[in-house]
């Protein structure tokens, strides 16, 4: 295991300490050491935005805490949902009295812990509503959308929900807009090498050299198939062939395209893939309204890429254009 760490059982705690020291203008501590909030949260008269999940996905989840984005985050162990208490503490840190939108990904542990946290919050009269991201196409068939897991599309859900809340939307309006964002979003990933949870010390899945896993999940969940390694152009074709018909996306659509590395794939390769994706979309008459290329949602040091596409309408465009500032995403006007 080649890692820059100290005690493998304390990687999350030590990362949190470093994060606070590195971003004092963005995040502040709460009473719960695993819950950080935007320095100005709770913001008067604004719906609070909360998310949370297992660690190991930097910049997700804490990297999206900031201005006009997420107000408070719950950070679990590596690849493991935060306990209910943490989500509940995040609700308290984000709530200004206007309610809390908890925008998170579809995983069994997160579903249970959020459900319990909402029950706890009811006792405090904090109103919490949820949107559960399910943008990963290969994780379940189209007739079982509620079984699909949430992946990099979550970033667009936070961006849209965060903007809508900053514009003064009510809890129901924020929830509706964030739901529309994720319902209009489709993603998939290709994995090229495995990752190692520090406390385990060795990878618990393998991807043989010269092969790639199509449809891999953010924790190494098996995908659709393992096949020989392809060129970037072939990967772009393979991913768009799966993503585009699923919504479907078609000629004349304005879309956001988000290409994210899974951890150790260099920026150079992400831009090569984006170039190939852009060619396919422009051939099909699909207009890229806003591209994002970078490391937005990773899986420790896994190699590989994810492609996310979101179809826009006027209100989603307004939310995507809205200013925001956090470690993972900075936008200062269109």
């Amino acid at each position: 295991m080649q890692k820059v760490i100290n005690d493998p059982s304390k990687v999350v705690d030590e990362m949190v300490e470093g994060y606070i020291k590195a971003h004092p203008n963005l995040v502040a501590r709460t009473q719960n050491p695993r819950v950080l909030k935007y320095v100005n949260a709770p913001i008067a008269n604004k719906v609070g935005i909360v998310t949370g999940g297992g660690s190991g996905h930097k910049p997700a989840f804490v990297g999206y805490v900031g201005r006009n984005m997420v107000d408070a985050v719950a950070m679990g162990e590596i690849f493991s949902s935060p306990p209910a208490q943490m989500f509940y503490d995040a609700f308290k840190a984000a709530d200004s009295g206007k309610g809390v939108a908890c925008l998170y990904g579809n995983y069994a542990g997160d579903n249970m812990n959020v459900k319990m946290a909402i029950e706890m919050a009811l006792d405090d009269d904090i109103e919490v509503k949820t949107v559960v991201a399910n943008d990963d196409v290969p994780s379940a068939p189209k007739d079982a959308l509620n079984k699909r897991r949430g992946v990099a599309g979550e970033i667009l859900m936070w961006k849209v929900g965060g903007a809508k809340a900053a514009m003064g939307g009510t809890l129901d309006e924020v929830i509706a807009e964030a739901q529309k964002a994720i319902s209009n979003t489709r993603s998939m990933g290709i994995g090229l090498s495995p990752c190692t949870i520090p406390e385990k010390g060795s990878p618990n899945f393998t991807i043989k050299a010269g092969t790639m896993e199509v449809g891999i999940g953010h924790h190494g969940e098996s995908g659709l198939e393992v096949c020989p390694l392809e060129t970037s152009a072939q990967m772009a074709k393979r991913m768009t062939d799966i993503i585009l018909p699923d919504l479907p996306f078609g000629a004349g659509d304005d879309v956001v395209v988000l290409v994210s590395g899974l951890g150790s794939t260099p920026y150079m390769e992400l831009y090569i893939l984006f170039n190939d994706v852009e060619k396919i979309l422009s051939q099909r008459g699909i207009n890229i309204y806003h591209p994002y290329v970078g490391h937005y949602f990773t899986s420790l040091e896994m190699a590989g890429v994810t492609l996310t596409i979101m179809k826009l309408d006027d209100s989603l465009k307004a939310c995507i254009d809205y200013e925001c500032d956090c470690m993972g995403l900075q936008q200062f006007g269109r």
């Binding site: 679990g76 209910a84 542990g109 319990m116």
Partner: peptide, 15 residues
């Protein structure tokens, strides 16, 4: 302890 500190799926289920 399971519900406040462990998380995952097993925290809530055994909690």
């Amino acid at each position: 302890i399971l519900m406040s500190q462990i998380g995952g799926s097993m925290g809530p289920l055994y909690g």
